[in-house]
Amino acid sequence: MTDLPKPRGPLSVAVLGALRDLPTAPVPRIEEAPESDDDAALTLWVLHELSYGGFDGVDEAAESEPELVRVRGMLERRLEADLRSRWPGVPDVDLASGFFDWVAGHDGPSIARHVQTSATREQVLDLMRMRSVYHLKEADPTMWVIPRLPVSAKAALVELQYDEYGAGDPSRLHSHLFAQGMAASGLRPERGVYVDEAPFEVLDQNNALSMFGLQGRLRGAAVGHLAAFEATSSMPSRRMAQGLERLGFPEELIGYYTEHVEADAVHEQVALRDVCVALVREEPALEPDVWFGAWACLDLEVRAARRILGAWGAAA
């Protein structure tokens, strides 16, 4: 549970106001349009958060308030339309045999490389605050997809998620490892406390993932996103761990990244072969969305990396 973030424009002012006034005052008709990408992304992030842990002082019934659900749908359509309009389309690549090389060929700036060799301590703390928007709910958005999958893909995704959740050991749960790493580094490990600092590029990474998970029709995109995410984790996690060691960060935070070097070398195989390929075998019409979700993951990371590295004055 966390506090509501600060609004970023007229739509977020209206939605945050409505959330604060529940349950005393009913939600009014929200006429405001998003004024900027920041206004849209923050509002959608807040509305999605109602389906995770919610906020301190906000009525839990807000999650299913029809007017808020309508605004969430409007913002999800805006985000999906924006992603689809920028998506170059299905590549001429065989999913099972060509996916990893396709991912590797997707160019973009690497935050992990910068952390490995030249980031300052302040920059890393800044990065951890932004990464916490996702890492503190790591794996959670993907859980929504499970009931929507055919039998083989479903079993495989559960196997992968079981490892994300520490194979039943709460002290090994990935989002908890990150929380411990934050606390040991002097940062606050509660969900959402640093959202005010996150630019819309970072919030949209989270929003796309929640949207793919929450909407059954986007299950192909959800698993494609997962495969691309896992396939871009092992080696960058090694670089992150080396950079954190260079800067003297605590073992707890380094441990989160070293865990991901080995875990995601497994997860990328399971996600591609046993989840994505298995799903497309059963539902071939979903293959374009698998590619779309994978592309969205890579593209949103490139945009976030440009923004973050740009703010640091580091070459992007």
Binding site: E159, Y162, D163, S234, M235, A265, V266, V270
Partner: peptide, 19 residues
Amino acid sequence: PVSAVCRCGKSASKPWCDG
């Protein structure tokens, strides 16, 4: 629960795969 054993010989975390 599932482990990836390196088969290329180049992993820095041998015997586990590191991508």
